[in-house]
Design a binder for these strands. Structure first.
Length: 260
DNA sequence: ATGCCACCTTCAAGGTGA
């Protein structure tokens, strides 16, 4: 099966580009971020017409995450545990009944954290700690688990075009990298590092400063896998050409193929 | 140091993103 993650930067603005890509790439499961609408404004019909079931956690104007699945969706968990009073729609998890095994899937829109001297940075770090705690409890099930999304983390200097520009940014801060590493130390494999691992293969290009034309991107969309999922990982791919379509998102899909 | 673009919203200019 093919599972993708894509920060679409408004599902309503992007609906034509999204359905065109789904029809062509035919992923079985898609984790969407930044849908930027309330759940009742989500374009269910367009996705159902393509054969997808939908789990949605929307929010007015900002954030918002969803999971599309050609398999049945069960056990939906809307929201990351451990955040009393956290109103931001950044996490949805469900179990999908894939062909060979049930798979637990989460769509993650991790906070940006800039500017670093504001409360946004500690919010990001705390959110990453909550994600680690929750991932640890999920890993105890010893089942296929996929945590896919926009992590807003530049994990290595080779994941941006110029580290000097990003030094000091919340996406590259030591505190951010340490918490991202701690996720891996729980026993989660990074699909890109397992199956490709090349530097300078980006998943986001800013709309500004001609970033796309100059290939000034960053690699911040990641797919993390439990051992029970990583054992079945066949390949990983970044759908770079999607950044070149009419009215593109600033992110492109990342697709993992698993023998599950 | 700021805006550069593009999204959102009680329609217009400000908040947000990365």
């Amino acid at each position: 099966m093919k599972i993708a993650t894509w920060n679409v930067n408004s599902v309503r603005t992007r609906i034509a580009a999204i359905t065109a890509w789904l029809a062509e790439a035919k992923p079985d499961v898609v984790c969407l971020q930044e849908i930027k609408c309330q759940s009742d404004q989500f374009p269910y019909l367009e996705f159902e017409d393509l054969g997808y079931n939908c789990a949605v956690l929307g929010q007015k104007s900002y954030n918002g995450v969803a999971i599309l699945s050609k398999y049945a969706i069960e056990e939906t968990l809307p929201g990351l545990p451990g955040g009393e009073g956290d109103e931001q729609a950044r996490y949805i998890e469900c179990v999908i009944t894939a062909a060979k095994a049930p798979i637990r899937v989460a769509s993650i829109y991790l906070p940006n954290g800039n500017p670093k001297e504001t409360q946004k940075f500690p919010y990001k770090l705390r959110w990453m700690e909550r994600l680690r705690d929750h991932a640890k409890s999920l890993l105890a099930f010893e089942e296929p688990l996929i945590l896919a999304g926009d992590y807003n983390v530049i994990a290595k200097d080779g994941h941006c075009w110029d580290p000097a520009v990003w030094r000091g940014d919340a996406l590259m801060a030591d505190e951010t990298r340490a918490r991202f590493a701690a996720l891996h130390w729980l026993g989660l494999a990074n699909a890109w590092e397992v199956k490709d691992g090349r530097d300078h293969q980006y998943t986001f290009w800013d709309y500004q400063r001609g970033a796309w034309a100059k290939d000034h991107g960053i690699h911040i969309d990641h797919i993390l896998l439990s051992a029970q999922a990583a054992d079945h990982l066949q390949g990983i791919e970044i759908a770079k050409k999607v950044r070149g379509v009419e009215k593109p998102s600033d992110h492109v899909p990342v697709i993992a193929e698993l023998d599950l």
